[in-house]
Design a binder for these strands. Structure first.
Lengths: 319, 319
DNA sequence: GTATCTTCTGAAACGCGTTTCAGAGCAAGC
DNA sequence: GCTTGCTCTGAAACGCGTTTCAGAAGATAC
């Protein structure tokens, strides 16, 4: 495959001139520019991206770190990221961690080895303290709360969002409320619990169910929930998919929603809409976009930024 | 940041020796090996992946081309791909095309510019004829049918799968069957239509609904379906999400499933299970794995392969 | 007419790890 | 004692595009 030196020889110009033509530098005479273009066509020249990357030090790649690519929760984030990346001529390198700390480290090592220009972290086990040790090698943006100043954070304000969700439930007359969370120790779960205790007068520790991530978990939850003696009148889920699993199983058991138990989801997935799930709509695609744009801005010298986004109520029939 | 030459100087050995230590070449004396390791530690050496890539010509990256990353249909494929890639120390570069031919071209151009070692195409607008023009630059594997010999294909045998789905419907006593397809001109849709006409005695052109991709489309379909005078007794969907949208809307309208119309989905998404959707289980995660492994094998000199996978019936309550 | 720009060109160095090749030193084979 | 072979080492070339720097030629300024 022809390289820049072959082109130079063929067009009888210097390598520098060919490079200038490639980069549309103005100081090339029309005549030579034409000759170079012809040579490139004749030899079927294709610029070697690797060489460019080594030379400039810019990879035009960003690593995206998330637990599972097929978990619907991340779909909107990734979609926003993908669109923004495409627009700015960046490629996304996806790294699936399965919640393993070691995989997160490997993914961030790409930064150290200059395989990518930046990192976007949608979920992490790693402490921010450790994450900061990677910061010297490139910008990092997270979709979670609690990041230090050096790390950009574009996230859903889970505390405020849960407060507003609880208010929606209260406006519908529900006072005895339970909440369904994902991993119990994650910052978002902690914020949600805090909101729960701050805002719900009848809050009870045993009305917090943790460890529910998927629709299958939602199915399981139905059994657990129904076996409980004292049950809340409404459930606030932190994920639409868990809510849907629960809803499906309740339907199967012919238990009326919202008469027996009211439900409020979180995310706003279209599939929830089909089953009339009331939910808190989260601007995840927009967050994805902004995560990318923030990272890009940082690469161009901007300061890290922190921004919390809020959610809105989407009417359904489960309240 | 220290490079290999700095290490060489610091350890008072040649650059070659440092390279040998990095690559665990046996012909390095213990003494020098130790000196090199010490120098690397002292200077905080990090191997520059870019330089390695330029030097070896191997990127350890594969581009994955698909219309939308957040479409649940692709979730399992991508999951399988991601797991296999991780195991073999490859990175996945995701390219979202939104069904645009031009985006597919850009994605495959990565191959030409040596930005990736291979390409995996989960869905494409591009003709195989055009796709073959990229073949010279690296292995390509598709998840669709009809690929020429030069392009690997690991796919669901849509014809056989639709036949077996139709048989399931017939075994449940349904003769008047309609089918719901995605894009009408895609090879999979054509194969499905063929199976429909070959296997269903009462097949009718107006019982083929095309253009249904998402759960929102499924909701829309309910209206269209119900407004039709002569309706089939059963619907065979080519996507669980479309089926679920339809199912939700039918529930909202208090129309009994399967009494009014029986439903059979396709894919086997967990969320379908929650709502008792009968479906044809597709081994998409396995296909993802094999797509990667095939591509890897081709990079190591193996021939392209074609393999059709079959689906199995997953019992639900919508038949 | 001299000084100062502007335009255009190319040699060489740079980014950095790998590979090839030549050769030195030493041991085993016969 | 001489050949063969193995172990170890490093200089130089290679992959390939970009950038720096020096300089030539022509144009403009005053």
């Amino acid at each position: 495959m022809a390289n820049i030196r072959d082109i130079a020889k063929h067009a009888d110009v210097s390598v520098t001139t060919v490079s200038r033509v490639l980069n549309e530098h103005p100081y090339v005479s029309k005549e030579k520019r034409v000759r170079v273009h012809e040579a490139m066509k004749e030899l079927g020249y294709l610029r070697n991206q690797q060489a460019l990357t080594l030379s400039t030090g810019k990879t035009q790649r960003i690593v995206v770190i998330l637990p599972y690519m097929d978990h619907p929760y991340y779909g909107f984030f990734v979609n926003g990221l993908a669109k923004a990346a495409l627009e700015h001529n960046y490629r996304l390198v996806m790294w699936q961690t399965e919640y393993k700390l070691n995989e997160e480290r490997q993914a961030l090592d790409l930064l150290k080895h200059r395989e990518v220009d930046g990192a976007i972290v949608l979920s992490h086990e790693m402490s921010f303290k450790e994450m900061e040790t990677y910061r010297a090698y490139g910008p990092i943006a997270v979709a979670t709360v609690g990041a230090p100043e050096t790390i950009s954070s574009i996230h859903v304000d889970h505390y405020a969002s849960f407060i507003s969700g609880i208010r929606v439930l209260q406006e519908h007359g529900y006072e005895e409320i339970g909440i369904i969370l994902s991993r119990s120790h994650s910052p978002s779960s902690l914020a949600r619990q805090q909101a729960y205790f701050d805002e719900v007068a009848h809050a009870r520790q045993q009305w917090i169910w943790t460890g529910y991530l998927t629709s299958e978990d939602g199915i399981r939850l139905a059994e657990t929930f129904l076996s409980q003696k004292e049950r809340p009148r409404a459930l606030f889920f932190s994920s639409d998919y868990v809510a849907l699993g629960f809803l499906g199983e309740m339907q199967r058991r012919h238990i009326a929603i919202p008469e027996e138990v009211a439900m409020l989801g979180f995310d706003g997935h279209p599939i929830g809409h089909a089953f009339g799930l009331s939910t808190m709509l989260s601007p995840n695609e927009k967050i994805g976009r902004r995560l990318f744009e923030t990272t890009l801005a940082e690469m161009n010298g901007a300061q890290p930024e922190t921004h919390g986004m809020t959610v809105s109520y989407q009417v359904g029939t489960t309240l």
